[in-house]
Every structure is written in structure tokens, then in C-alpha cells.
């Protein structure tokens, strides 16, 4: 008898193997490396990419842009979300801005950012515009869903406002904030790479992807893609761990 976690792990493993198999079959069937490089060629290229002198500077630059964009968005989303959650006028003042930001196509934002800023800043700016509305809306929703009866209780027992904010509001919105953050984190890496491809900073995963594409090095495109998937995966894992940690009282 297998436990259900072992069983699930086996299923995941089988699914990954199937993916590799389909990939391999497609590569054999098409038999054109420029369209569909095989897994083993990609693996060789991946090794070459990782051992290249510009690998760590590129990954480091992309990571720091992503994290800076993400953290600025979180901070702004938290502060403005709090203001809008508490004050209806602020909410309605911010609403049109948030809607415009939310509905503008990523590519329009990227192109405008390239016109306005230097190439290093573009991905950060674009990430901010994509991530901020998500964090902001989650914080506002969190505050609107704070249990009114608990608030009434705290006010009746004359608990100080500062403690009501830290011990009642913040824990109440934490699940919303973390859900928003893990959703946003996944989008961050996609947006960062897209912005880097167009803005072409000197060190960037996106720039390397673009160079590989121009040189018709499809295997290298695959290799860099694998790198971004790994980055996404690591951060998703970290945020999930954090989310579970905060759920201990459940």
C-alpha cells in the first residue's frame, strides 16, 4: 500500500516523464533542431548557458529587477489599499487609475516605458504596473471583509487603535495579501522577461532569450526558458511555504 502523498509524487513524476517523452517524440518526428530541439540538446545547451560568463550577472539582474518591482508593488499596494479600504473617497479617487492600469495591455506599457525610461528601469516599471493592482485589490478586499463584530468588540473594550490595526486588521487581511502575493509572483517573472526582451538591458535573461532567437539558436531559447521556469518555481515554493506557516491557527 502506498500512502497518498507517495502516490501523488509518483503521478507527478509520471507526468513529467510523459512531457519529456512527447517533447522527444516531437523532436524526432520534426527532425529539425531549429524548430524543435530535442531534450538532450537542450540539456547540453542549458549547461553551456549556465557555465557562460554572463549567466549569473544576467540571472542576478533579472532576479533583482523582479524582486524590486514586486516589493515596491507590495508596499504601494499595502499602503494605498489600507487608505482605500478605510476611506470611501480615497477608494473612489483611486478607482479610475487602478482600472486604467489594470486594463492597459502589457505591450503598450512596455513600449511607453521604453520611450520614457532607460532600459534597466523598464522591466521594474512594467512589473509595478502589472502587480500593483493585484496586491491593491486584495488588500482592499481584505479590509472590507474584516469581521465587523470583532471590530465592535475591540472598540467596546477600548483597545487602542494602533493595536487594533496590528492585531486585528493585519492578521485579518494576511490571507488575502498572501494569496495576492503568490498570484502576483507568478506573473512577475513572465512580465519581467517580456519587458526585458523589448527593452534589452545589458544583463538580463530576456536579452539572452532575444539574442538566442536572433541567432536562430532555438535550443538556447529552450534552455533560457527552462531557467525562467526554475526561477518561477523556486519563488512559488517559497511563497507557499510562507502561506502555510501563517495558517497554523486554522
Amino acid at each position: 500500500m502506498l500512502s497518498s502523498t507517495t502516490k501523488n509524487k509518483l503521478l507527478t513524476l509520471a507526468s513529467i516523464l510523459a512531457l519529456l517523452l512527447v517533447w522527444k517524440l516531437l523532436a524526432v518526428f520534426l527532425n529539425q533542431e531549429i524548430i524543435m530541439p530535442s531534450p538532450e540538446i537542450t540539456l547540453v545547451k542549458l549547461w553551456m548557458v549556465i557555465s557562460a560568463h554572463n549567466f549569473w550577472p544576467s540571472v542576478g539582474a533579472t532576479l533583482s529587477r523582479g524582486l524590486i518591482g514586486f516589493l515596491i508593488s507590495c508596499a504601494a499596494g499595502l499602503v494605498l489599499g489600507f487608505c482605500a479600504g478605510f476611506s470611501a473617497p480615497v477608494y473612489w479617487l483611486l478607482q479610475p487609475w487602478v482600472t486604467v492600469i489594470r486594463t492597459t495591455p502589457v505591450m503598450s506599457v512596455v513600449i511607453l516605458a521604453i520611450i520614457w525610461f532607460q532600459s534597466d528601469i523598464v522591466p521594474i516599471f512594467v512589473t509595478f504596473l502589472m502587480i500593483f493592482p493585484i496586491i491593491y485589490s486584495n488588500v482592499v478586499a481584505g479590509i472590507k471583509n474584516v469581521d465587523q463584530q470583532l471590530l465592535e468588540m475591540a472598540h467596546m473594550y477600548r483597545v487602542k487603535i494602533r493595536r487594533i490595526v496590528f492585531e486585528l486588521y493585519i492578521p485579518s487581511i494576511l490571507p488575502y495579501l498572501l494569496a495576492g502575493a503568490s498570484n502576483a509572483m507568478g506573473i512577475t517573472w513572465k512580465v519581467i522577461i517580456a519587458a526585458e526582451i523589448l527593452s534589452q538591458p545589458i544583463f538580463a535573461v530576456g536579452t539572452n532569450l532575444m539574442i538566442a532567437k536572433i541567432n536562430l539558436e532555438t535550443a538556447q531559447v529552450f534552455a533560457w526558458t527552462v531557467v525562467t521556469i526554475i526561477i518561477s518555481f523556486i519563488f512559488e515554493y517559497l511563497l507557499n511555504t510562507l502561506e502555510n506557516k501563517f495558517r497554523t491557527w486554522g
Binding site: 463584530q149 470583532l150 465592535e152 468588540m153 475591540a154 473594550y157 477600548r158 483597545v159 487602542k160 493595536r163 492585531e167 486585528l168 492578521p171 491557527w249 486554522g250
Partner: peptide, 21 residues
């Protein structure tokens, strides 16, 4: 009628919440 306890605080911490100030 409702208990109005904070879910993220233990029994002790819930009582402490109203006494602390």
C-alpha cells in the same frame, strides 16, 4: 451572543488582547 474571539490568538492571548492597554 457570538463569542467574538480572534482566530489568530489563543484563549490566553484573546483575553490579553483586551487587558493589555
Amino acid at each position: 451572543q457570538e463569542t467574538r474571539l480572534l482566530r489568530w490568538k489563543t484563549v490566553e492571548e484573546n483575553i490579553d488582547f483586551v487587558l493589555k492597554d
